[in-house]
Design a protein around this nucleic acid. Sequence first.
DNA 1: GTCGTTTTGTTCAACCGTTCACAAACTCCT
DNA 2: AGGAGTTTGTGAACGGTTGAACAAAACGAC
Lengths: 224, 224
Amino acid sequence: MTARTPDSARDIPEATVARLPVYLRALTGLAESGTTTCSSEELAASAGVNSAKLRKDLSYLGSYGTRGVGYDVEYLRYQIAREIGVTQDWPVVIVGIGNLGHALANYSGFRSRGFRVVALLDADPARHDEVVAGLDVRSFEDLESIVTEDAVSIGVIATPAVAAQSVADRMVAAGITSILNFAPTVLTVPPGVDVRKVDLSIELQILAYHEQRKSVAPGSEVVS
Amino acid sequence: MTARTPDSARDIPEATVARLPVYLRALTGLAESGTTTCSSEELAASAGVNSAKLRKDLSYLGSYGTRGVGYDVEYLRYQIAREIGVTQDWPVVIVGIGNLGHALANYSGFRSRGFRVVALLDADPARHDEVVAGLDVRSFEDLESIVTEDAVSIGVIATPAVAAQSVADRMVAAGITSILNFAPTVLTVPPGVDVRKVDLSIELQILAYHEQRKSVAPGSEVVS
DNA sequence: GTCGTTTTGTTCAACCGTTCACAAACTCCT
DNA sequence: AGGAGTTTGTGAACGGTTGAACAAAACGAC
């Protein structure tokens, strides 16, 4: 048996980390529908995974269930939120207020899940008088002062591809250590900085690959 | 040695499929900058992976390189495009023309990569007179006729979470077999239908998890 | 208190994906 | 033609992820 650390401190597998937010959302849904207790089977169904995987994932956080009973929805929800770090609010800055930047700025899912958009920046002065989602679009030159003042550690890049690398460089120089990149380009960052990328057309291309296969071979593939 | 099938027919690992579009983009970039030949090392650098992985990925498609020389950029680009299926155009329908739907409809990366948005649908009649990205927003009730008429097999869901499942059900009933879901909810679909999901807040939460860990001193344990 | 039922937490084996290391194959130079 | 240098394609080892199966623990009935 591994040593039982009182507070969570062990390293959680990356695949598990990626699913924790899904469990968190499922638990929120259950809580809103009035459920106070749930089994791993129920929660797994809500999250779209199988129950063995769910239990294994939760076991990395600690032992928050009760055998023979299940999980207390509110308690587990809090534990996962704490583990992810969304019990506190994370200030976020969005750079590139085009169509996608607009959508991101207005996305209510950010604020409701522990993220607070503190600034919208764009290199184009023509956009600087605009007000989006209650925030006025500011100059990209303000990046450093905003990052310092609001202790921003997460940046979102929604610029055209050509600008993305230089924006990332400025972000890193300003002190940002986590970047969510929507621009269709590969970012190079120094060690210690995390980058996650969301690429819309890549997702469609993956679907197209499988779609093409369906029309050829009868052996169908299912990805949930 | 495994049997050499003349045309691509073997099953390509899912992880490899997800990277092929990245290679395709990197090759397009190289071609635009006038490069006609590249080594696996160069291409891997452009794509942000290591060269061994790149070579192994490409080996699933066939043997398209020349030892001692490298890859012909244009030739390899075509082969990957053919494998993914983006040499033909894929008609796509987008449902839910809110902020995100707007952004998706205007996203030029779709059309330039083999996808053609044929219709924008929304359940809200107040949006039906709007024109977005050169297309007029139509009623969700038109889904079936559009899917049939334009042979649409890929649908994009950009609706609020509560509507997503019923939209997916209608899409599946209409004949769509691949769905890209931007709504923050788990979709249930019958076997044979592929779903990929893009979840903006989940990506941020994964970053937050790692960010939280950075600020804590490595190996420090708090025991009260 | 004991038994039976339920459900978690964990162990174990199979699977998938990544990386290393190297033989095979091609070019260039002499 | 042959040898040196280069780069691909792949076999094999390794580590991470998944899924099944089960022991441990809690609860309720009596």
